[in-house]
Design a protein around this nucleic acid. Structure first.
Length: 468
DNA sequence: GCATGATCATGC
DNA sequence: GCATGATCATGC
């Protein structure tokens, strides 16, 4: 095991060529190789082993980049293979901790973020289930510099975060606020709190980070040598450096057009089921789906088309991927998939309103769920759901037609969300951690969290009032 | 008429 | 075959 006096800080002054030379020798190496050839503690993280072992400088939390002469910051991060064979990033990439008391005084160019993270040397290793971490292998290394378009979006994201600090709302920062650059919680636990300059309320300690979805896009580019996906920027110009403004401006030009007129105008096949989304794609001039553009993938934006009936109601609530019963009972709320889903997703709502029997394009808005709703309403529903599953208490009884009635929290339980089936049919099931008391079965129909239609209506009506 | 259980349809 | 966005169907 290395002791500090053996480190040589001069290694932080290596030239770019020397750094890349060394990195080349690391690609294809397993953790165990790096531990052994560098006499390094096997319990250490891959990142530490590379910094202290392979590069022989002491790990630090300095505000300058690791390789200070070249201004290159070293990162080691995992990716994984999905069930369908594709690859995605396992985690967000954490950059530097945000000092709420200082960061707001700076311009982006002077920011701690930019000072340290202009150029990232990212080493990717594959995280594989059921193999010992010592055998994880570095498979890719890239010197990442932000493209001009990425940078414009990241600057805008940085400003969004800073604006929240300036408004005395550092405690309300959420990853869903921004597109590529997030502010994720970072500390010994989620209770690590810090002062903020414009409010007495202590805020969770957070770090700038590149969202998991942003990292996934990089992983996809590395792992697939084939097609490049449509870039949104091949079709639209960024206005005021913001995805948000650009898309709203382009779509809002067609406010008041009927679905029928838009379908004729953009030559959309009338039989298509997802015709509303197709219309939006055509308005933006995108060949495939808006949600498949790298920008929307990187920013984790879900596109949802919403129809408001003439009686000012939305017929359907909004569904999400089904949760796994066995998983959800093992999670804590803070670490749960459900919390992550609502915190990190940004929505693009495209609203069509019915008038005289026909739907008209009416509004476009980006939205993400405020943190207080996530940690109060959604948590309440989640807690109740977990309790029911844990106790084998899902089924409450049967209706006359044989349909089962459940104890899952309904729309009456909470104003924001509820739990309902979401599968191919009642036989589409996931296994239960506890046998259900009524059915005696160890499986149950897949369910998911749904946003209440009444809640969605409130969100879009409020937006409608604010702009008109 | 709505809430809730169930299911469809598409794409990978 | 399954995940996911979207919608149907009917008992209360």
């Amino acid at each position: 095991m290395k002791t500090p006096e053996l480190f040589d800080e001069k290694n932080r002054d290596l030239t770019k060529e020397e750094i890349l030379e060394k990195v080349k020798s690391l690609v294809g190496k397993q953790m165990i190789d790096i531990y052994e050839t560098n006499d390094f503690n096997k319990k250490a993280s891959f990142g530490y082993a590379i910094e202290e072992g392979a590069f022989n400088y002491q790990r630090n939390s300095k505000s300058e980049a690791d390789f200070r002469n070249e201004n290159i910051e070293l990162k080691v991060t995992p990716y994984k293979r999905n069930k369908n064979g594709s690859f995605s990033s396992k985690e967000r990439l954490v950059l530097n901790i945000i000092n709420y008391m200082e960061e707001y005084k700076k311009t982006f160019e002077e920011s701690s973020l930019w000072a340290k993270n202009q150029t990232l040397l990212i080493l990717f290793y594959e995280h594989v289930q059921n193999i010992s971490r010592e055998n994880f292998m570095i498979n890719y290394a890239i010197l990442h510099q932000f493209t001009e378009n990425d940078l414009r979006i990241i600057k805008n994201d940085w400003k969004t975060i800073i604006d929240k600090i300036k408004a005395g709302k550092a405690h309300e920062i959420s990853e869903g606020d921004t597109f590529y650059l997030g502010a994720c919680t970072k500390g010994a636990n989620s209770d690590t709190l810090r002062q903020q300059p414009f409010s007495p309320i202590l805020a969770k300690q957070r770090a700038f980070s590149l969202k998991t979805t942003y990292m996934t896009q990089i992983v996809k580019e590395l792992t697939s040598r084939t097609k490049k996906t449509d870039s949104l920027f091949d079709y639209i110009d960024l206005i005021d450096d913001s995805i948000e403004e650009s898309i709203i401006k382009k779509i809002s030009f067609y406010y008041g057009y009927s679905v029928k007129a838009l379908m004729e105008l953009f030559d959309v096949n009338s039989n298509a089921k997802n015709k509303l989304e197709m219309i939006v794609n055509r308005i933006l001039g995108i060949k495939r789906n808006l949600s498949d553009t790298p920008e929307f993938t990187k920013a984790n934006i879900k596109v949802k088309t919403i129809r408001v009936n003439s009686n000012n109601r939305i017929k359907e609530s909004m569904s999400f991927p089904a949760f796994k019963y066995e998983e959800i009972v093992k999670e804590t709320w803070e670490e749960s998939k459900t919390r992550a889903l609502f915190e990190s997703t940004k929505f693009l709502f495209i609203v069509f309103r019915e008038k005289n029997g026909e739907f008209y394009l009416d509004d476009v808005m980006f939205w993400n769920m405020p943190v207080n709703l996530i940690d109060n309403n959604v948590k309440k529903v989640w807690d109740r759901t977990v309790e029911i599953v844990k106790n084998g208490n899902i089924v409450a009884g049967y209706k006359d037609n044989g349909d089962r009635k459940t104890n899952f929290p309904s729309t009456k339980f909470d104003s924001v969300c509820h739990v309902r089936p979401h599968g191919q049919n009642a036989k589409d099931v996931y296994s239960l951690p506890t046998i259900d008391k009524v059915t005696g079965s160890n499986v149950y129909t897949k369910h998911c969290f749904w946003l209440n239609n009444s809640f969605i209506l409130k969100v879009i009506n409020k937006h409608h009032e604010n702009i008109s």
